[in-house]
Amino acid sequence: MTTNTTSLRSALGHARGLGSAKEGTHHWWLQRVTAIALVPLTMWLVASIIALSGFGHEAFVVWFGRPVNATLMILFLGVAFHHAQLGMQVFIEDYVSHHGMRTALNLLVKFACYGLATLSIVSILTIAFGA
């Protein structure tokens, strides 16, 4: 009979690999995926802002009216707000000890992030489709 004498973990628990929080490395991994995606997206956005900085509304509409720019901006907004929400969750869970307050803040941050992300993406789409 072969049993693992060094671990108290059950065979099923080991196979699932989720740990006590029941979600494994999902949160950690998504934070990394979004971080890697944000490296080039952020550099593109900074370059765009520098290019638009001297000009008015017309330049903004022309720039984000182009499909590739609209796509990159929507990707940036979706990924950045997702990353922000993941990071804020870690921050809140580490520093807010009151259980009810922690849950309330987490909900507030998540609703605000996804609300702002949607508003910003709809705004870019409005410009992109020339409405």
Partner: peptide, 21 residues
């Protein structure tokens, strides 16, 4: 990271204002 999360308010304002006119 926390500061940038609040900074997204500025970004969202900029983009939304552009869509309004």
């Amino acid at each position: 990271g926390v500061g940038l999360t609040f900074g997204t308010l500025l970004l969202a304002w900029w983009v939304t204002a552009a869509a309004y006119g």
